[in-house]
Design a protein around this nucleic acid. Structure first.
Lengths: 226, 226
DNA sequence: ATACGTATGTGATTTATATCACAAATATCG
DNA sequence: CGATATTTGTGATATAAATCACATACGTAT
């Protein structure tokens, strides 16, 4: 992996700006790219954290598995930083990251990342803006989980997958009913019933994990009303 | 408000580092301090956003009021940045901030804040670390709201107020039962019942809005088990 | 293809909690 | 101070969703 590629990829900005920084010549020496297949673990909770993980491509779930129950917190789609908090906020990963689709991840040493931030204000501002937007999303998730009932949550999950993850009203749910339930806090049985109902009323067409949203306005209403 | 005071307060770092930055001499010209009494609005959703708000002292709730129902998303305690996302992620505030206790807030122009970040890498890194820790907290909130039942949520709310907000096992809840319910997604009636039950079993001592946690271990267990 | 394990669908029942209704306590204001 | 509004507590009931139980479908490996 050449230095130029690394800079362009990680910094998301033109190389002229990157070259301003003396620290950058070492980026490609402190960064490694790894490929993951669906189901493979990228990092594990309770492991000492390995540094910053940048997702180059793919889709990942952040989850935690306590007392035999898997609980999914977020999906993260490339390109983005994967769960920075696990890297900066604590010395031990508090969550597990698992690939849902074929994924390429770049591992950057924490000291290198820190150097990039400190020496490159534009890069720092980019990261801060991205984290801020993420907090907005977190607020939305909180509203969804805290104040809606099951069909509202399912509606919201489908809209999220369509709008934010796949950018298409037809998609294949990247996990089982069980996992979908673990994500939005509903049992797999209720998920089945609600999807069947949405299917019967023509809001979606559903066949196994394939979903097509047919009546987005109605789905949005259901999500709104909770 | 002198420049020196502003720098020390906002940057949380020694003035030597601050002085490195040419932009800083203008901080005190682009920053204003305002006092708020409990119940007063600091900024309102749907208003064009005024810049970055730094909380110097006090306690604030971030909430949103749709269809006559108030929904509380987070509490934010000084010193900290108040809901940066509303400033950076969008041009219009998506949430309302209201003081719960007497609060001092500093309003910083967005361009000034940006300049601080871009020119002061250490400051930027501080902000990024703080935002990362906030995301950790958000994950915790999601687990709490999404996967726990009412008594677990109430237990968690009490522990949060004791540990994170007041740093004392005895405190006065800064809002009504209704608001507490709006925060954790439980009706005020259920809140009453659960607090009465905690009181009866000796986990807490409760009188009106005054709370003392008597058996923290048990409360933690209830919060854990959901 | 067959067999085994896993995932999914669906009914019956139970349970937690929202809703409704009203009383009591507390705060606010003239 | 009394009158009114707001907040809180508590019982009865309704309801959403979990749990339990089992059937069916699907996937994978031999």
């Amino acid at each position: 992996m050449s230095q130029k590629l690394c800079n362009e990829c990680i910094l998301h900005t033109d190389s002229e700006i990157c070259l301003r920084n003396q620290g950058l010549e070492s980026l490609h020496n402190h960064c490694s790219k790894v490929k993951f297949n669906p189901g493979e673990t990228i990092f594990k909770e309770n492991a000492i954290n390995a540094g910053v993980v940048y997702l180059k491509s793919g889709l990942v779930k952040i989850h935690t598995c306590t007392q035999a129950k898997d609980r999914i917190l977020r999906l993260t789609k490339a390109p983005s930083y994967l769960c920075l908090p696990s890297s900066l906020g604590a010395s031990v990963n508090r969550f597990t990251a698992t690939a849902l689709e074929p994924t390429e991840a770049c591992f950057i040493e924490l000291s290198t990342f820190r150097q990039l931030i400190v020496e490159n204000g534009d890069f720092a501002y980019q990261i801060i803006t991205a984290l801020s937007q993420r907090e907005m999303n977190n607020f939305h998730v909180s509203l969804n989980l805290g104040q809606k009932q099951a069909n509202g949550r399912v509606a919201d999950a489908l809209l999220y997958l369509a709008n934010d993850i796949y950018e298409n009203d037809s998609f294949v749910i990247p996990f089982s009913r069980q996992e979908l339930g673990d994500w939005i806090g509903v049992t797999r049985e209720s998920i089945s019933r609600i999807l069947a109902e949405f299917n019967a009323t023509g809001i979606i067409r559903q066949e196994g994990r394939e979903i097509s949203i047919l009546n987005k306005e109605l789905l949005e209403q259901i999500s709104e009303k909770g």
